[in-house]
Every structure is written in structure tokens, then in C-alpha cells.
């Protein structure tokens, strides 16, 4: 048996030597079959153990098992190394230029004015307002009369307002000049309290230039409840300015005039560009006119059947395009109606 063991040790040494040079998984498999398989010297030696006496059998068996374990361990180790090397070389062959442009649909963009419109809407929805919609072609009654605009008001002139041919009265139906008629329509349909915003298209008879387009966008807001005051107006609109422009935004209110509010105000906001120091954007004043607002005129309440002695409210109107221009530094209103992809791509 000693001879056999010596032979096995020689086989082990030879296998170890050959394993050193093995670089292919297949060669390792073959070697494994050769040294550990059924026809191997090791298997032959195991089969010969039965003929040995009890004591020698145990000893020889242990020696054979040790050799087999060493070989198996070494084979596994080598197999792992070869597999790792093979994977490494395969991956290396798969190397590509990751800086090439990616695959898939490149998104387009929502229009900037619509993005701003959604954002402003959300500021007020978060304050408990809902959204009300109304017709773009509107009656002169809702656009003017119900909003306390006198019959001789210049805004009604054909030079300022686009009228459409509908019905017998040539000045009866028009393209709304403000989103405010929605307030009147909404109040007619709903009893107080009312907290609404109504964003949408408005129209003026303006030729397109840097600061005018015949179509633009406005958002009207209205809060009517028992005990709504000028202080509520100030707080709400100041909140809006901070939400939209940033927490540091300062606002000022100065008296103004609108037929449908009394008292009326204009809200100015500190110039985002110079932060109040005075620059070209704000005309040197440090302040930018942002929106018109005021306490709802009692005549408007009466026109919709509300009692001006028991409810009060405030309304405001803000130019959505103007907000977008101010925040993003768009120099001319006409860009918003320009379908040039070089413009639209910037809205991503």
C-alpha cells in the first residue's frame, strides 16, 4: 500500500503542476475527471482498501481522502480563477463609449406660460381655492356691465376690444378682455363663501409688439366670505409672491383704480433682478408692478345678487405671461406665441 500511496502523491504533484498552467475551464474539467474520476488512480486505490486489514485500511483511507480533498480544493480554486479571468476578458471585449447619447424618447416640454399657470393655480389650491372656468367669447354684460364698467368706459371702444358677430347687438358679444367675468358667472351660480381662481386666455385689440399680443393669459382670483378684509387681501397676495418668487420677496400695495373693486390697489414686488436697488428691469425704482387687486365693489355684488352689507371679498388679476417674463427674463411677450423649437426647447 505504501507504493500505492507514493504513486498517489506523485499523481497529486503532477496534477498540481498541470493545474498551474491550466487557463481554460475545459482543461480543468478534464484534469478533474482524470485525477478524481472513476477511472482515476485515487478511485482505484479506494477500491483496493477493502483488501487491507482494519488498522491499515483506516490509515490508508485517511491518506487517500486527504489527497483527494487537497486536489478538489485546488481544482475549485483554479476553476474560480479561470472563470474570473474569462469573465474579465469577456467584459473587456464588451466595453463601449458610455458618453454616446442615450436611447429612448426625448421628452418635449409643456409651454412655459402653462407651467406658470399650473404653478400659480397650485399656490391658491393649497390655500383652499378651486378653479373656475368660463367662456372666452363673452357677453358685454359679463365682461363689462356686471363688473361695474360704465357704458362710456374707454375699454369698451372698438379700438381696444375685439367684438364678434353674434346676435343683433354689434357690441353685445366680445372676446373677453379679462378673466374677471368668470367671477360674476360663478357668483351667480354659487352662494358665498367663494374661493376661486380662474386662469385663461384674454384678448385685447393690440398689434403684436414687444409688450403686446392680441392674446395673452390672466388669472383672476376671488375670495368672498363674511368678514373678508383688505388685510386678508394683503396677506394672501404677499403669500403668493413669496411662494412664486421666493421667501425673501417683499411687496408693497399702492392705491389704484379698477371699476370692479373699491378700494383698489396695485401690488408691487421688490425687483428680483436688483433686489430693490434699482436697475433697468424695474426702471430704477426697485419695484415691479405685479398685479391689480382690490375689495370687490358693492355694485358687483349687487349685480350677482349678493348682499354687500353682509359679505365682503377681494379680487385680483395677474398676467400669467407677465409672471413668466419676469421670472425667466423673457424679454418680449411675442416669444410666447412663437413656435420656434429653439424657444420651446428652453421650456423643458
Amino acid at each position: 500500500m505504501d507504493d500505492t500511496l507514493a504513486g498517489l502523491l506523485a499523481v497529486e504533484a503532477e496534477a498540481m503542476r498541470r493545474l498551474e498552467g491550466a487557463t481554460a475551464a475545459a482543461a480543468i474539467e478534464a484534469l478533474e475527471r482524470e485525477v478524481l474520476g472513476n477511472a482515476s488512480a485515487l478511485a482505484e486505490a479506494r477500491r483496493g482498501l477493502r483488501a487491507l486489514p482494519e488498522g491499515a485500511r483506516r490509515e490508508a483511507g485517511r491518506a487517500i481522502n486527504e489527497i483527494a480533498a487537497r486536489l478538489a480544493e485546488r481544482l475549485a480554486e483554479r476553476r474560480f480563477l479561470v472563470a474570473a479571468a474569462e469573465e474579465a476578458s469577456r467584459l473587456d471585449a464588451e466595453r463601449l463609449d458610455i458618453t454616446l447619447p442615450g436611447r429612448g424618447v426625448r421628452p418635449g416640454a409643456a409651454h412655459l406660460v402653462m407651467q406658470v399657470l399650473e404653478e400659480v393655480t397650485d399656490v391658491f389650491v393649497a390655500l383652499g381655492y378651486t378653479v373656475a372656468d368660463g367662456p372666452e367669447v363673452e357677453t358685454a354684460f359679463y365682461n363689462f356691465d356686471a363688473l361695474n364698467t360704465p357704458p362710456t368706459h374707454p375699454a369698451r371702444l372698438e379700438s381696444d376690444t375685439l367684438y364678434v358677430v353674434h346676435g343683433p347687438d354689434p357690441e353685445g358679444v366680445l372676446l373677453r378682455t379679462q378673466t374677471s367675468p368668470v367671477q360674476a358667472r360663478y357668483m351667480e351660480q354659487h352662494p358665498p363663501p367663494v374661493y376661486i381662481v380662474s386662469p385663461g386666455r384674454v384678448f385685447r385689440r393690440d398689434t403684436t409688439d414687444a409688450t403686446h399680443t392680441p392674446v395673452f393669459h390672466q388669472m383672476e382670483g376671488l375670495a368672498v366670505d363674511a368678514g373678508v378684509t383688505f388685510a386678508d387681501l394683503k396677506g394672501t397676495l404677499a403669500h403668493f409672491a413669496r411662494e412664486f418668487f421666493g421667501p425673501g420677496q417683499r411687496v408693497r400695495f399702492v392705491p389704484h383704480f379698477f371699476p370692479f373693486t373699491e378700494p383698489s390697489a396695485e401690488m408691487l414686488t421688490s425687483c428680483f433682478s436688483c433686489e430693490g436697488g434699482g436697475c433697468r428691469v424695474c426702471g430704477g425704482s426697485g419695484w415691479i408692478e405685479l398685479l391689480g387687486c382690490g375689495m370687490v365693489d358693492p355694485n358687483v355684488f349687487e349685480a350677482v345678487g349678493y348682499d354687500p352689507a353682509s359679505v365682503s371679498g377681494f379680487a385680483f388679476g395677474v398676467g400669467v405671461d407677465r409672471l413668466a417674463m419676469i421670472r425667466y427674463g423673457v424679454p418680449e411677450l411675442r416669444f410666447f406665441f412663437d413656435p420656434d423649437l429653439r424657444v420651446l426647447e428652453q421650456y423643458r
Binding site: T121, V125, Y129, V228, A231, K234, F253
Partner: peptide, 18 residues
């Protein structure tokens, strides 16, 4: 003076985004 008046932030009772 409009600037002299206080500011308050009332919460509405609207139904949110339709």
C-alpha cells in the same frame, strides 16, 4: 397708507383642483 394695514392669510373652503 396701504402699507400701514396688517396682513392676514385666510384659508378658503374650495374643493381643490377639479
Amino acid at each position: 397708507g396701504y402699507d400701514e394695514f396688517p396682513s392676514r392669510l385666510p384659508k378658503g373652503v374650495g374643493e381643490g383642483l377639479p
